[in-house]
């Protein structure tokens, strides 16, 4: 995996190391607080509900603090986590995926999935609509028959499906 590729500017490896370590330290903090709330002691018949939460939180705090300090101690050596052009590529997948997740709550999984396939094929793959529409339709129809009709597993649905009586 080329670590230095791109050459130009981007997000530094060090920045991301610091970010992730801080995030884990924050999670550890939450766990420790929750452990204290539930009781982190050792009752006569074994640990209380928050015992493991507390100590595991503490271990995570130690580990992520070390990771954080190591990242901070490392000089800014220009190593990149990923260059901007590459991050742009990732964003092309990630942003539609996030929108997809949000759309499921509004229009249901079927419509959202069709839109996602269309976007991926048209936007990323450069397929024509005449190629993309049948694929999207086939996927949605297969999923609908498989889950909704045969296996009787209801998936999230939106106004379109409700109008059709499902």
């Amino acid at each position: 995996m080329p670590q230095f590729a791109g050459g130009g500017s981007g997000i530094a490896q060090r920045t991301m190391e610091i970010l992730l370590a801080s995030l884990m330290a924050a999670i550890a903090g939450l766990a420790i607080r929750e452990g204290l709330r539930l009781g982190n002691g050792w009752a006569f018949d074994g640990p209380e509900a928050g015992y493991f939460l507390f100590w595991i939180g503490l271990l995570l705090l130690v580990a992520s603090t070390v990771n954080l300090l190591r990242a901070l101690a490392r000089p800014a050596d220009g190593r990149l986590f990923a260059s901007w052009p590459r991050l742009l590529l990732v964003a092309q997948v990630l942003i539609p995926a996030a929108l997809y997740g949000a759309a499921i709550f509004l229009v249901g999984i079927y419509a959202a999935s069709a839109a996602l396939v269309l976007w991926f094929m048209r936007g990323l793959g450069g397929f024509s609509l005449r190629q993309a529409v049948p694929v999207a339709a086939a996927l949605v129809l297969t999923a609908f028959l498989l889950f909704e009709v045969w296996f009787l597993v209801p998936l999230p649905k939106g106004p379109v499906e409700h109008a059709l009586g499902f």
Partner: peptide, 8 residues
């Protein structure tokens, strides 16, 4: 295509 299907 496969990425979209895998995601779905």
């Amino acid at each position: 295509i496969i990425a979209a299907i895998v995601l779905v």
